[in-house]
Amino acid sequence: MPKRIGVGFGLNTRLAWVVLFALLLFGSLLFVDWRHIPNKNAGSGFGTLLTAFLAPDLSIENLQRVTSAVWITVSYAVTSLFLAALIGLPLGVIASGVVIGRSKPLLPLAIATRAWLGLTRSVHELIWALIFVAVVGLSPVAGIAAIALPYSGIIGRIFAERLQDVPDPLIVSVGTAGANGVQSLLLVRIPSVLPDTISYLFYRLECAIRTASVLSFVGLGGIGFQVHIAMSDLKFDTVATLFYSLLLLILIVDLMSRTVRSRILS
């Protein structure tokens, strides 16, 4: 059915949505304790922050500190993502049921795996971090596990969905040539989803960098930790440098993703 553009939304519908949005916003604002909002810092604070962001601290000493923090955060991000992919992708294959799901007795395994993947992803990494730190102590392992666990969940789930979405005619076609479930997985499903999966993993790397920078709160060192310290010392130009370094990291990952993607497509 051809979609008509620009004509489908009547004035009433649009109005309804605007009203709904406004209600939502203002309704939630009722919850806010307005008396305390304007901090003594409010006006000047904002101004100070703005100046700091326009003129970040680029001294050698600061840059050294920032670089080491960046390196810590990147290490956490890369190692946890690597682990997450290592665990998540195979689990995704199982959860998708494209191979396992064909035999009746093994179907519950696929469903259980699917449930497990969804479960781990429901909880935020910071909460996992608290739990792991309580169990393991303040070790990098706690941080890695806290990121890898939920990330393996979402990676597995997305992978499973993508595998299932491969068009049936392609599968049937190799099936007639004699391919069994595993062969059609290797020859059709995985090659079909590989380019998108690689971009998705790069996106996850981006998220992992952000998450790792936040987890450093918990005491493991990294960008977030340094931001915390800098804010406490009111060194806003340092904070600005740290934020810009995050921006740089994200841009680099974005660039890598685009290069690999264009190369895969060629």
Binding site: P167, P169, L170, S173, V174, T176, A179, L187, V188, P191
Partner: peptide, 30 residues
């Protein structure tokens, strides 16, 4: 069944991301 009958679809239904070679070799799957 692959020994008895083979079927080339009108829509071809090849795997776009694979090389021609790999698509052809897929005929050996059985």
């Amino acid at each position: 069944r692959y020994r008895e009958v083979g079927f080339m679809h009108q829509q071809l239904d090849l795997v776009p991301q694979l090389s021609a070679r790999k698509n052809i070799e897929a005929g050996n799957s059985g």
